[in-house]
Design a protein around this nucleic acid. Sequence first.
DNA 1: CGGGATCCTAATTGATACTG
DNA 2: CAGTATCAATTAGGATCCCG
Lengths: 105, 105
Amino acid sequence: MAAQQTCYCPVDDLLDLLAKEYTLAIIGLLADGGTKRHSEIADALSVNSSSAFADRLSALTEAGLLERTSYDEVPPHVEYSLTTRGREFERRLRPLLQWVTQETG
Amino acid sequence: MAAQQTCYCPVDDLLDLLAKEYTLAIIGLLADGGTKRHSEIADALSVNSSSAFADRLSALTEAGLLERTSYDEVPPHVEYSLTTRGREFERRLRPLLQWVTQETG
DNA sequence: CGGGATCCTAATTGATACTG
DNA sequence: CAGTATCAATTAGGATCCCG
């Protein structure tokens, strides 16, 4: 299994990530191209495991799907949004999810 | 989270399944519409955990993506192929996977 | 041959507490 | 506020044995 230069992470890794809690919800929440704070996202998702949630945010960022912007302020202020890659990914994911939930096929 | 009549399994369940070992490989192996025996698939996938592998086959069957055909013979003979639903699913999955591996976007 | 049952180990999650 | 650290509880995976 050779790593490809053109790919941020292998298929299986990305699927693992997708299947974990919060991941899909985070992508869905930012799908409109908007930017949201850590706490906004956590709030909207009724997160109850802050460590798992933080894991997802950083994993998605490392995968190149999320962009993380932190402002040097007190208190801290960090925002997340989908990257171009993230939006492209979401676009390709959507038909699959719609089919699974609606069985429109 | 209400179950929908039209859907064999909720999104999260299917994603969980997809992220587990062998699942994606099984779907990929049968993507051409062919039919293969349990042992053929296991062989092609270099399976080393027969229990996990059997779990995937039955989970995919329960999800309505695989069709299981067993012949009343000794020794037993069981074949698997993608259902119509399974092929439709694979079709919608493919662009996503291709993008992830090739970054053609 | 196909696969269920069991036992054990490794990885994830959930919850709580803590820090810059 | 945005995480990190920690630990108990779940869950997945690997190996083995056995049955129809």
